[in-house]
Design a protein around this nucleic acid. Sequence first.
DNA 1: CATTGTGAACGGATTCACAGCC
DNA 2: GGCTGTGAATCCGTTCACAATG
Lengths: 214, 214
Amino acid sequence: MSRRKAPKSVVKRLPVYLRILDNLIRRDIEVVSSRVLSDETGFTAEQIRKDLAYFGAFGTRGTGYNTHYLRDKLLRIIGLHRVTKIIVVGYGHLGKALTRYNAVKNSYVDIVAAFDINPVEEEAIEGLRVLEMQYLPEVIREEEVKVAILTVPAEAAQEVVDLLVENGITSILNFAPTNISVPEGVYVHNTDLTLELQTLIYYSFEDEALHYGE
Amino acid sequence: MSRRKAPKSVVKRLPVYLRILDNLIRRDIEVVSSRVLSDETGFTAEQIRKDLAYFGAFGTRGTGYNTHYLRDKLLRIIGLHRVTKIIVVGYGHLGKALTRYNAVKNSYVDIVAAFDINPVEEEAIEGLRVLEMQYLPEVIREEEVKVAILTVPAEAAQEVVDLLVENGITSILNFAPTNISVPEGVYVHNTDLTLELQTLIYYSFEDEALHYGE
DNA sequence: CATTGTGAACGGATTCACAGCC
DNA sequence: GGCTGTGAATCCGTTCACAATG
């Protein structure tokens, strides 16, 4: 029932719970305990209960959580109860991968258009517009888009970010391997595949005694 | 000088330092202070000094860190002083994006082959072999590959993971949006684009009072 | 004297333990 | 009886403040 703003660590787990609930509901399961959610997610049951308790008391003591009810609550908490409009900027392989990916899965979002400096006509898929950059301001305005996925080369990233912010984008999922700077109030989430790969390699050698031993 | 194993939070930042050092060296800069690294990375200078101190005393008081020396140390710590061989399993758009991405950038890794249940011949690029799944054990064995990037559909993920582990893979960068289970000793890093997008959406609504208010 | 390296203080997140409730 | 909700205890990571030193 606490009403202070949720910690980052909690927010990161909410979409995980949502996905599990979607799966449970698909299997016609009506009620789930924190213990079962723990088995599915790998988080501890206490942690799950505490996470949910940041936003309210959604469970029934002795029984568990109603899957439909909890999903609805989570959708509302995350902000997915209304479909979120998104644009993809940079329509290379990664941009394509992300649009396909999302077209397939129900992830409560709608990619309204993709942009590229050099859009290839025939690569548009199932109703997705692939447009030249010049149309970006128009689309953002007309569709009232607030969220953008950025998959342009590192060199172009900052320039494009400035354009996005200028036209009203407030949240950016950045795949360009570079630090971008934004004004106060704009939220950026960086996903850097190279860094993640290198981190993985660290752990792949962790055991070996030679790892860092002279 | 502490020799206990480094916390995850520290390990995640090491590749960031490495990238900055690569950039500095490209600009012929010989010495860098923790303050400058702080400006470049957004982490605090104290944190950077502490992170590096987990592995040794690499700096010179009053001066800073020698960029070449520190890079060499970081390469060795992360395990990138030798090129790491990697396979990509699942050669859809995402698999392609990752191979291109990496072919271009020097990230100290070498993708030795990609695998797919239905490899399309003409899509092989600059020396990258795109092979049928049946050749997977052979390649892993002959090339002594320990690290795999997994970009197959969620339904196939667990099955493919079992195959990988069975043949000697010890580290997996998983892009399939599902929890995979592995035996003790195998390290998995999950990168789930849908979850990251949904987390972003949470923050895009965070300010709005209506966010979670009945 | 500028900058590193580090013990101590702090703060945030997780785990523990159990009270509250169906 | 079983499972949620939560204060207290603990753990972990970050920040602070300063001693060490080229």
